[in-house]
């Protein structure tokens, strides 16, 4: 009886460990995304600053695929602002996800620890018996 119990516990532990590694992968992915977005945000802010410094009559182009398309300065400005807004929102969302995942990871770790302890105590009991 205790042997099957032990096996069950070990299987459970394995499952949990798999879940945990999945979670960790996801967290790593999220971190990467976050880094990418942060870089983009920085770049966009730089662009916005430069655009703000341009005179009204300056020619602004946007590279779309292989061609440079002439753009209105105001339009370009608005586009960049929108882009910044979007990236900020995205960053916030990623932060929330990462936090969520962190919490999940911690609870998983806890359960795994508890499982390990139970297995150990079971094994110790068996050793004595």
């Amino acid at each position: 009886m205790s042997a099957s119990n032990l096996k069950d516990l070990q299987r459970e532990l394995e499952n949990k460990a798999n879940d945990l590694s999945k979670l960790q992968k996801e967290i790593a992915k999220n971190h990467q995304m976050r880094k990418k977005y942060t870089v983009q945000l920085g770049e966009n802010e730089l662009v916005l600053k430069e655009l703000d410094l341009l005179q009204e009559d300056a020619n602004v182009y946007k590279l779309i695929g292989p061609v440079l398309v002439k753009q209105d300065l105001a339009e370009a400005n608005a586009n960049v602002r929108k882009r910044i807004e979007y990236i900020s929102a995205e960053l916030k969302r990623l932060d929330a996800t990462v936090q969520d995942l962190d919490e999940k990871q911690n609870s998983k770790k806890d359960t795994i620890l508890k499982l390990q302890q139970r297995i150990q105590s079971l094994q110790a009991g068996k050793g004595k018996a």
């Binding site: 662009v47 655009l51 020619n59 182009y61 590279l63």
Partner: peptide, 13 residues
């Protein structure tokens, strides 16, 4: 000069 400002935006300067 056509300066790349970033994010695909260029400006004539």
């Amino acid at each position: 000069f056509l300066v790349l400002l970033g994010e695909g935006y260029y400006a004539e300067r």
